[in-house]
Design a protein around this nucleic acid. Structure first.
Lengths: 162, 162
DNA sequence: GTGTTCTTTTGAACCAGTCAAATCAAGGAC
DNA sequence: GTCCTTGATTTGACTGGTTCAAAAGAACAC
């Protein structure tokens, strides 16, 4: 298993080091971890690891195409290994939990902007905001989105819009 | 005109103050301004204005529903007065320019996640990444998305995906 | 006008992330 | 296997965007 990760690094033109293997292992175990969680997790495997090293490693992985960085508004950046497929994210307004979603329509027509204003678009990024199963129960079940929200984002009333 | 803005503030249950009117005026003149630009602009109208006051005002406006905060990955937050309609944003990877887009489809089916994983979704936020007209010319016209990019985001090769 | 309450000011602090120099290790050449 | 070059990590300081807290000030209901 570690051989696989080492091969991935090598294939991407990156040297195989213990810090990098540790970070990859943490990312495989918990997708959508933030830098801090990755530092903590990777230190279990390589105690001397500094947080700056993790930032460097994450940057190397992202620019090599081995990892993807997502930045939900109001939260620190998250990292995931699932890269190269067309998936988006569900984010819980209350606890920040993140789940992957595939878009229902492949190359969806609604994701070609109606008027691109001269822009050449190369990516459409979608974030679905809501409440995860757990927070629906914890907060009051109706109008739960009004509850104590850590992520500073104006909650649109009245259903999903596009 | 200022009467209108004052009325909007009052209607939202906020006191009418010169700092707030100044910030609203700046937001009306330049949509998608960041906090720093708003401070600079508002100081032209109210020189003693502190940046902390602007942060406070912006927060009040957003939570009152008079303004909307958007946070493109890797850039400071932007603010706009256009609220309550279903619009999204085009962001230039090179210069950070932002343009509004209405989605082609109203309550688009593709924006209902294929599998919501138990989440109750109340908003779908779409960001289209690309190059604005100006940066297409400045950078090399083909594969321009590979150019010196300030916003740390992995550029997906091969067209818009969903 | 007066007083209460909300705003702004002032000044400090916080956090995620970055930078730069020095040390260290991976892995190709021998 | 050892040496050397280049790239990776460590160490420590620092930045930019944003938030917090206490004190001073201004709106506006009465």
């Amino acid at each position: 298993m570690e051989t696989t990760r080492a091969a991935e690094l090598r294939a991407a033109g990156l040297r195989v080091t213990r810090p990098r293997l540790s970070v990859l292992k943490v990312l495989a175990e918990r997708p959508h971890a933030d830098a801090d969680a990755i530092v903590t997790g990777a230190r279990a495997l390589h105690p001397s690891l500094s947080s700056q090293a993790v930032y460097g490693i994450l940057r190397a992985l992202v620019s090599a195409g081995l990892a993807r960085r997502i930045e939900p508004a109001g939260a620190p950046a998250l990292f995931e290994l699932r890269v190269g497929d067309n998936h988006h994210h569900l984010v819980c307004r209350s606890c920040g939990a993140v789940a992957d979603v595939d878009c229902a329509v492949g190359a969806a027509p609604c994701l070609e902007p109606s008027d691109a204003a001269g822009f050449v678009v190369d990516e459409a990024e979608v974030v679905f905001w809501g409440l995860c199963l757990e927070c629906q129960g914890r907060d009051h079940p109706v109008a739960a989105a009004e509850e104590s929200v850590q992520i500073p984002q104006h909650a649109t009333r009245g259903g999903v819009h596009a």
